[in-house]
Design a binder for these strands. Structure first.
Length: 465
RNA sequence: UCCUCCUUAGCUCAGUUGGUUAGAGCAUCUGACUGUUAAUCAGAGGGUCGCUAGUUCAAGUCUAGCAGGGGGAGCCA
């Protein structure tokens, strides 16, 4: 059996080579049958469907068949035949079965029955073996691959921004410290504070919250770059849309203004959705059937509609005139709350919305200042179901304006001197944005909790597995 | 971090104004069935009612604290 090349279930199910001897290896989903014949559904994760293995009871040792239970892992050699019954085009008439690993049915937690997503989160080491998580992880892979394909095909270069950072200038929330100092007895300075000069890097270091600043450095040389990397937020956020460790895609493009930026964001999102519709049809249909009846319709709708592009000020006017009983009062200058974004996207425009030109006070220091002295050239893409999926802007390329903003916001210049120098030497207009990978996977899979679209979620009080 | 709800069999859940032996479906085990599709049919086993303290003649049920989880909000992607 071992000198034969195994075939994937995905290949077997579309094979036309009836009568051929084949080898398949995978995990048993169910076994049923009677005294004469057993039907074993085998799945190897290559596709959501199983291959049916038919074993004549008389041809096999009783003990062997008894050990084939839900969750066990087997190799089967047999003849690929057309299935005489409904449900599958082909099946394998087993000649030899080898058991790689048994799974005690009394203790194996996965049943043939459906499980709650909450329960599966507690057994994240086994949940990849379910139909749901197989589908999600195949789709997650497809989106990740399509991101690289899209950028590569459009002349972008993939930049690896650092994971460990010496500055917390990104201004995107709390950071995790990276240190090798003894937490019980750290070296102290005369004033009693921790002396990070004795730490590994000779200064206080953190896990990055964004690769953007470094991506800008690269964009001002390679013109079109993107990052795709994990980022970390030490916020105590307990919601179905937040992770402490998540992945982000951050394109950064020289000579792009904010309109070019929006065009790129919209085109990228539509490309990714189309790619998944083309490549992951079976998985999407399964998720639609089990979790979200309107999933595929919604994905197609987003591809076929133009995103509504409005300014922040226009959005405020619409919200004020809406007559909605918002919990948070609407006034020019406020940061839009979830309820406001939801109203604009799901009730008012009923499609994805891109808002631009936000008040400078509620946005980051690096965003390009408009001539009105009040707003910056930001753009947020708001999606149904998940809210802000992209946040970006044209960047401030003027040295003096950027420096004055840095001083106004009390950002230590010693932390960003290198960033400032790109505006001193050959500065260029440029733009970019950040796309939350898991947020987007929520949208594209129809899942409702971000912990179900990443294999091993990290959230406050939880770093198991 | 705030608000709110939940925690009973391996899983999903029911359990009346506090009352005597805590139930169901699925799963598991045993048996039946010549091709099943989350097979079907019959039977059996399976419980520290999250933990701790309290109220009461009596607590799965009421109260408090703690732990874990869900939803909403904030922070953000």
């Amino acid at each position: 059996m071992e000198n034969m090349k195994p075939m994937k279930v995905r290949e077997l199910l579309k094979s036309k080579e009836i009568g051929k001897e084949v080898l398949v290896k995978g995990w048993v989903r169910t076994k049923r049958g009677n005294k004469q014949v057993n039907f074993i559904a085998v799945n190897d994760g290559s596709i959501i469907h199983n291959i049916q293995v038919v074993a004549e009871v008389a041809a096999f040792n009783d003990d062997l068949l008894k050990q084939i239970t839900t969750g066990s892992c087997i190799a089967v050699k047999g003849i690929l035949v057309e299935s005489p019954a409904q449900g599958q085009p082909v099946e394998i008439q087993a000649k030899e079965i080898e058991i790689y690993g048994t799974a005690d049915p009394e203790t194996y937690p996965l049943q043939k029955k459906g499980h709650s997503l909450e329960f599966l989160r507690e057994i994240a080491h086994l949940r990849p073996r379910t139909n749901t998580f197989g589908a999600i992880f195949r789709i997650r892979h497809a989106v990740a691959f399509a991101i690289h394909k899209y950028f590569n095909d459009h002349g972008f270069y993939y930049i690896h921004s650092p994971i460990i950072t010496g500055s917390d200038a990104e201004g995107a929330g709390a950071l995790f410290r990276v240190s090798i100092l003894d937490p019980k007895d750290p070296p102290l300075k005369p004033d009693g504070s921790v002396n990070f000069a004795e730490d590994f890097f000779g200064k206080e270091t953190k896990l990055t919250v964004s690769g953007q600043l470094e991506a800008e450095l690269a964009a001002l040389a390679l013109s079109q770059v993107y990052t795709f990397a994990p980022t970390f937020r030490a916020e105590n956020s307990n919601t179905p849309r937040h992770l402490a460790e998540f992945w982000m895609i951050e394109p950064e493009i020289a000579f792009y203004d904010n309109n070019d930026n929006m065009d790129l964001a919209e085109d990228l999102l539509k490309y990714l959705i189309q790619y998944v519709l083309d490549q992951c049809k079976d998985d999407l249909e399964f998720l639609q059937k089990m979790y979200d009846p309107e999933l595929i319709e919604r994905l197609k709708f987003v591809i076929n509609t133009g995103f509504e592009r409005r300014t922040y000020s226009e959005a405020i006017d619409i919200l004020k005139a809406s007559g909605q009983p918002f919990e948070y009062h609407v006034e020019w200058g406020i940061d839009l709350q979830a309820e406001h974004e939801k109203y604009l996207v799901e009730k008012y425009y009923k499609k994805p919305v891109i808002l631009t030109d936000y008040p400078r006070e509620i946005k980051a220091f690096y965003m390009k200042q408009n001539d009105d002295g009040k707003t910056v050239r930001a753009m947020d893409v708001l999606f149904p179901k998940i809210g802000e999926v992209i946040g970006g802007s044209q960047r401030e390329e003027n040295y003096e304006k950027l420096l004055s903003r840095i001083r106004e916001m009390h950002i230590p210049e010693k932390d960003v001197w290198w960033y400032l120098e790109t505006r001193k030497f050959g500065t260029a207009p440029h733009s970019g944005f950040g796309l939350g990978f898991e947020r987007f996977i929520i949208f594209i899979t129809g899942m409702s909790n971000i912990r179900d679209v990443i294999p091993f979620p990290r959230t406050p009080q939880n770093a198991e597995f």
